[in-house]
Amino acid sequence: MDETLLKVEGLQTSFFTDDGEVPAVDGIDFSVHEGEILGIVGESGCGKSVTSLSIMGLLPSPPGKIVGGHIYYKGEDISRAKESRMRKLRGNDIAMIFQEPMTSLNPVFTIGEQLMEAIRLHNHLSKKEQVERSIELLKLVGLPRAKELLAEYPHELSGGMRQRVMIAMAMSCNPKVLIADEPTTALDVTIQAQILDLMVKLNKETHTAIIMITHDLGVVAQMCHRVVVMYAGKIVEEGPVKEIFSHPNHPYTEGLIKSIPDLHGKKDNLYTIKGSVPRPGSIAKGCLFAPRCEFVMDKCRVNAPELSGSVHKSRCFLHQEQGRKEVHT
């Protein structure tokens, strides 16, 4: 669990649009260690997908561009790597799955054709070996009737099965890191439970590190070891999952936890974080969460808090002050 596979340092990614520069990701730092499951959580528009696309070298460009910082994969800076290098990394080291598997599967090719193409990209296997490997992968992701499935088309499969096929394709290169961008958001909870279970199993068996991107802290609690909380393009809290849930430091994290409906408690009004995520770059100064924060103080509207702490980090004056008080008394 020690070797750092991926290290993101001061990453800034912007979109250059007709309305000017949109700083979608604005200086984030985190790392992913071998074999771990790291959650990245935050509401829609906080910069989670842009972060993962930046890592993968898949930003739509133009208008997207990495304008600052570095992304190291095993020490190599890949933030400005050539497309040929990135293609190699995507085939062998870092794989990604998306929310809607239908858009990443080609409707006119069979599952087998697409799976074997993925296998061919990074292995020199005979046709027979490719078929065997495909069947093995479909079994690995828990799909029944693996042999018949090879001849079927994406539209013949359910959403959950398609996501399993995507995971099989992603796993075909034995990646060191699997980035999963809301892989279960479009699925029923029952199918979500299956897919999350599968991902935890793959993580244990193959030791592939997983970056699990989600807007649902329930998903984080269920499967992640560490979590990064993003708000408006910045990291506002980071730490071990148990620690974050028992002692959330940032009001945003606390709000996200509290707004999950309780299955068994009394059913009075649900807790909500008022308002919504600001457009990137629309808040000129102070804490980006200040307009929605219950604990906002005068200085929050003037100065921007830094991310501070070691294992458990947070970006909030409130906590930094309490922390200091605790030290003094």
Partner: peptide, 24 residues
């Protein structure tokens, strides 16, 4: 029961015996 147990619980300390339905 299965539908209820599939809902992720936002508490990492609770390890329920999850009923995971197979198939679709």
């Amino acid at each position: 029961k299965a539908l209820l147990s599939a809902v992720p619980i936002p508490d990492p300390d609770i390890k329920t015996e999850r009923i995971i339905l197979e198939g679709d």
